[in-house]
Design a protein around this nucleic acid. Structure first.
Length: 867
RNA sequence: GCCCGGGUGGCGAAAUUGGUAGACGCAAGGGACUUAAAAUCCCUCGCCUGAAUAAGGCAUACCGGUUCGAUUCCGGUCCCGGGCACCA
């Protein structure tokens, strides 16, 4: 066997063929064992697998294969999040249909996934762009329309002028479109929304039950939902002398009613409907100008004003009565007040709110402090706790008590009521793009917006289309939208918008459970919830919030039974690499791919720069950054697979860092992983070559054979814990490497020595199977096993074998290590101290001093405190 | 500004409940094999003093505290990464 060199390409392809023939990873609801649903976020079929995919899917595969070895009935599916903008952009650029481009990409990426040997049940694969998939999404939507959970309203949206589409708030980053990078404009058009705000409280409270989710994700979701408790109250409109105008009030929302005595002015958002009503003739011109300029301001300009000391605004000429002081205060409009939150109007308390302070300073408005700031406070608005001052019946109360009193008072006076507000907005799901799931609605002049009847679903998106410019072909085609009203039979038109693609990724995990036929059947309740979900942290808010929301919608529709879709979540870190650049011929910075760079090091081995392999020209070392096209530091996994094989790529991506930290790509690191597999190969094959082994006779083992077994069973215990509880695959691999180093040095060719080697080799191969399954499957067979390794049991640590005969006790004097002692387990403090006193080096530090205290950490350490 | 993470050798990292800091790997240096190279194998490898594989000092961003003992706990400061960003 050893004459056979390790040839990864040949070996891996043959093993993969066996798995295919045996349908090794087909999941079956009636199989034995407790179910385990392991899911990695499905990829967008962009064309090629990148290192981020490889990392994500390797983590999922390791967990799946481990759970299978633990006897669980495992489902690990894979599919394609196939709708989306890039397909349209590619179609426009290359003059092909988005469907064709998408299916071609799926074909290529599927081949890449198969080459990496992931244990997927491919029989459940689907692409979300097929009518078989999206018809259930359409059906669900029509039911939500009837239930009132989906509704249509005119709304000002983020308009991306490059992509010609509406963006969700979440898709706007720093005032720019997340894909195009174009400055986002505002535009008002009719849109479909899902009432995610109806579920805001449940989505928030549900986070407390998600013990298996990272705190960072839960915190981000909590902040995004942004629940706040306060009070909404009304103030009557008056003139500057307090003379009331009949039937006009301004409603405001505040979380700080305790500061009501410091309310020195009020502010409306520029879009507030009352602006037109209350503005005085004298101020009409100024207000009109301001509203126009606020409306025209781009998001970038708005952003520049945020946190700025200068706050823009204008007086309306109107006044309102502060209910606490019964004095009139002026009403302004300003763009630091948002129409979309609370009532779109605020009470301003400059003494206790930083933004109000800034506005008051810019407009010379009075400031009255109502909370005693701590001694020495010389800053602006004090937002912390302290006793109330200048507040009559609230004076002396701490903030929380004063809040309660103020709310009670407002309620008793009939002026307001306790109110909870959320930052979370309803989810706008309309997109003005072609390559998405058609929104199943028909517009009739008589009947309005009518959901497409269930027996007419799916509304199929035509796939064989031609693009004229960037406009959606179904919007451009007058025929496609023509239809009849399902209610009255009159001529009507179809909706030509499509769903946000987050709709498809919100329920795909349930579809994998029963990929054909009715939307969901009892198999969904067998597999759900997902036991382990794995994906990128960039989905912490958007996808993972919609995913939880949609699950609750399906629960309330009677389709699933659990409250949450996934019990455990693992967010893998980014894949990063060094960046290299040089000045190009045009004087611009050219980014050079790390794979093309020969590294240069200083005397200590530190990387200081490099040379381009092709022409030897020097390149500059830049920062370590996320792999990206713009910095040209992406490494194509396909090249690595071709060169080293799938096992090496899998091993490296699991070894270089813990899964939740960023992973730095390193050429020589990959090489190191390859070397380890080769050493493993020669370790096992040279053992096998010496012929068959006899059974272990534990009672007859020598000390060194026992010691070898102790190392093995310690390793099994540690690796099992790392893989199953800690998810630190890097330390599990390190422990296997360490053990293999011991095993390689164990040169005992006696019968029992070889029996120990056989036991160790079988255990190592089983423990490495989740990570490098191809080479392990071959070595397993070589070791004489006939059943497939993928269904073999994970090794168990033998506690008896782990018992140490002798151990090393560290001796400290005053907390510093001064010696070591060979001791038997369970050595008492007295015995240990007595023996420690015999050590010359220890004696030196005790000389002339008296022992004050002795601390023994059993079997580990003895600390002698002297003075 | 607010909310999360994080800061340990030349590098990626480890130290799981407060108990030997640097496991494992990479890089580097030295050696063996080889006509040579590659591959492989062996040795060294935090910094400083020291001939040393004797012994010691310093060291986990910085300052201080708790403790017999702190990378780990507490308080403060600096820096890096991520999220949110005028949400009243």
């Amino acid at each position: 066997m050893s004459h056979m060199l390790y040839n990864p390409a040949e070996l891996e392809l043959s093993v993969q063929q066996q798995w295919d023939e045996q349908e090794a990873f087909r999941a079956d609801e009636s199989a034995e064992g407790e179910k385990y649903y392991c899911l990695s976020m499905l990829p967008y079929p962009s064309g090629y697998l990148h290192m981020g995919h490889v990392r994500n899917y390797t983590i999922g595969d390791v967990i799946s294969r481990y759970q299978r070895m633990r006897g669980r009935n495992v489902l690990q599916p894979m599919g394609w999040d196939a709708f989306g903008l890039p397909a349209e952009n590619a179609a426009i650029k290359n003059n092909t249909a988005p469907a064709k481009w998408t299916y071609a990409n799926i074909g290529h990426m599927k081949a890449q996934l198969k080459r990496l040997g992931f244990a997927y049940d491919w029989s459940r694969e689907f692409a979300t762009c097929t009518p078989q998939y999206y018809r259930w999404e359409q059906l669900m939507f029509t039911r939500l329309v009837r239930k009132g959970l989906a509704y249509r309203k005119d709304s000002e949206v983020n308009w991306d002028p490059v992509d010609q589409t509406v963006l969700a708030n979440e898709q706007v980053v720093d005032g720019r479109g997340w894909r195009s990078g174009a400055l986002v404009e505002r535009k008002s058009i009719p849109q479909w929304f899902l009432r995610i705000t109806d579920y805001a409280d449940e989505l928030l409270q549900g986070l407390d039950q998600l013990e298996g989710w990272p705190d960072s994700v839960k915190t981000m979701q909590r902040n995004w939902i942004g629940r706040s408790e306060g009070v909404e109250f009304r103030m009557p409109v008056c003139d500057e002398h307090g003379v009331l105008q009949p039937n006009l009030t301004v409603a405001v929302y505040t979380t700080r009613p305790d500061t009501g005595f410091g309310l020195t002015y009020a502010v409306l958002a520029p879009e507030h409907p009352l602006v037109a009503v209350i503005t005085t003739t004298a101020q009409a011109e100024a207000v009109k100008d301001f509203v126009a300029s606020a409306h025209a301001a781009s998001d970038a300009e708005r952003l520049a004003l945020e946190g700025n000391l200068q706050k823009r605004g204008v007086f309306t000429g109107a006044w309102v009565l502060n209910p606490f002081t019964e004095k009139p205060v002026p009403v302004f409009i300003a763009d630091y007040v948002l129409m979309g939150y609370g009532t779109g109007a605020i009470m301003a308390v400059p003494g206790q709110d930083k933004r109000d302070w800034d506005f008051a300073m810019s407009h010379n408005l009075p400031i009255l402090r109502t909370v005693q700031a701590p001694e020495g406070w010389e800053g602006d608005a004090w937002t912390g706790d302290g006793p109330a001052i200048n507040s009559e019946w609230l004076n002396g109360l701490a903030v929380n008590e004063a809040k309660e009193q103020a709310i009670n008072w407002l309620e008793e006076q009939g002026l307001g009521q306790r109110t909870v507000n959320f930052r979370l907005r309803d989810w706008g799901v309309s997109r003005q793009r072609y390559w998405g799931c058609p929104i199943p609605v028909i517009y009739c002049d008589q009947c309005g917006a009518v959901p497409v009847p269930e027996d007419q679903l799916p509304v199929v998106l035509p796939e064989n289309v031609q693009f004229m410019g960037v406009q959606s072909p179904i919007k451009a085609d007058p025929e496609w939208r023509k239809t009849l009203c399902p209610e009255c039979g009159a001529a009507a038109e179809r909706e030509t918008d499509t769903f946000d693609t987050f709709m498809e990724s919100s329920w795909y995990y349930a579809r994998y459970c029963c990929p054909a036929g009715e939307p969901l059947d009892e198999r969904a309740n067998y597999w759900l919830p997902v036991d382990q979900y794995i994906g990128g942290i960039e989905h912490a808010i958007l996808h993972l919030m919609y995913f939880r929301f949609y699950h609750k919608l399906m629960r309330d529709a009677g389709l699933v039974q659990t409250d949450e879709p996934a019990t455990r979540l693992l967010c893998q870190g980014m894949v990063v690499a060094e960046t290299f650049s040089r000045i190009g011929s045009n004087g611009q910075l050219d980014w050079v791919n790390p794979i093309d760079v020969e590294l240069e090091r200083d005397d200590r081995g530190k990387i200081i720069g490099g040379k381009l392999r092709s022409d030897g020209s020097p390149v500059q070392l830049g920062a370590v950054e996320k792999m990206s096209k713009s910095k040209n530091n992406g490494v194509d996994p396909q090249g690595l697979v071709d060169r080293y094989g799938a096992d090496t790529v899998r091993l490296f991506s699991m070894f270089a860092a813990p899964p939740d930290q960023s992973l730095e790509w390193s050429d020589s690191g990959v090489e190191g992983s390859f070397r380890f597999i080769k050493r493993l190969w020669s370790l096992v094959t040279s053992h096998v070559e010496r012929g068959p082994t006899v059974g272990l006779e534990i009672a007859t083992l020598t000390d060194s054979q026992r010691e070898m077994r102790r190392l093995l069973h310690d390793a099994i215990a540690k690796i099992s814990d790392d893989v199953s509880r800690r998810y630190t695959f890097n330390t599990a691999i390190a422990a296997i490497m360490e053990f293999c180093n011991h095993l390689a040095r164990f040169d005992d060719q006696s019968e029992q020595g070889r029996a120990v080697q056989q036991e160790a080799s079988l255990a190592v191969v089983r423990m490495l199977n989740p990570i490098i399954p191809h080479v392990c499957e071959v070595l397993w067979k070589a070791l004489g096993e006939n059943t497939p390794l993928y269904s073999a049991a994970w090794p168990e640590a033998d506690e008896t074998a782990r018992k140490k005969l002798q151990l090393e006790l560290v001796i400290q004097v005053n907390g510093k290590v001064r010696g070591r002692l060979e001791a038997s387990p369970g050595t008492t403090k007295e015995t240990a101290l007595e023996q420690a006193m015999q050590i010359e080096n220890v004696k030196r530090y005790l000389d002339g001093l008296s022992v004050r205290k002795v601390i023994l950490i059993p079997d580990r350490l003895l600390n002698i405190v002297v003075g």
